[in-house]
Design a protein around this nucleic acid. Sequence first.
DNA 1: AGCATATTCAACCATATAGTTGACCTTTTA
DNA 2: TAAAAGGTCAACTATATGGTTGAATATGCT
Lengths: 123, 123
Amino acid sequence: MTSPAPPSLDQVFTALADPTRRAILSMLLEDDMAVTDVAEPFAMSLAAVSKHLGILAVAGLISQEKRGRVKWCKLEPDALREASVWMQAFGQYDGVNLDAFERFLAQELADPALDGSDVHSTS
Amino acid sequence: MTSPAPPSLDQVFTALADPTRRAILSMLLEDDMAVTDVAEPFAMSLAAVSKHLGILAVAGLISQEKRGRVKWCKLEPDALREASVWMQAFGQYDGVNLDAFERFLAQELADPALDGSDVHSTS
DNA sequence: AGCATATTCAACCATATAGTTGACCTTTTA
DNA sequence: TAAAAGGTCAACTATATGGTTGAATATGCT
């Protein structure tokens, strides 16, 4: 078998263009999941979700490892970095909202438990 | 005429998924260009390039202004901000809570002035 | 062994996308 | 005023995409 081609920007951006696939990535952000569990919240067939996962895998955004009869899906954030870097070339994001973003992250990472509904409250 | 809907992540990522459109963005990074000049290096019809530019415009990635018979195309890097920040959440911070992040993003995009940062500072 | 579970495969359908060509409208120029 | 230049529109074609269903393939359980 040939070694897999590195994911292209085409594949990464195409994968990200679908809201179902972005939702899947969000789910995998929290934890690794089996295909069936990924599919559960969606109003579409298991086969359809399986296809979406295949597209995400080809794009390098997730990896899939089969243990027993269960195929585990894992977020692979590295693939996003290439695309992110590409985008940075266009953004003069200097002052925009990265300051606010970093403050958000600081709070988020400091105390993920209290982010229920008042993300920006300081209380 | 209705005010244009703000570009969605769908539209931005879909626009970025095509190599021709990414090449166009690269060209516009250097300078504003007329439609005919944008089309010149591509081995496709002017109409096809015109369509690509329309897709980029709907995604908010470029703006188009008609002066005389010439329509000038200008890069609008701000539209990349939302998508880029969305990606950063995956690329760098494993533990980030996406629900909170989405709320942050919604507020940020709705009213950047409210977040207390010096949004337009020239670093 | 036999059945249930987890996942994919294959065939199919509807719609979207990227491209073409030729006609058309508007603006500039001779 | 007539012709050329800059773009878009409309109709069409081919292919890609996202979804379905039913059958097939493994693996695990009793």
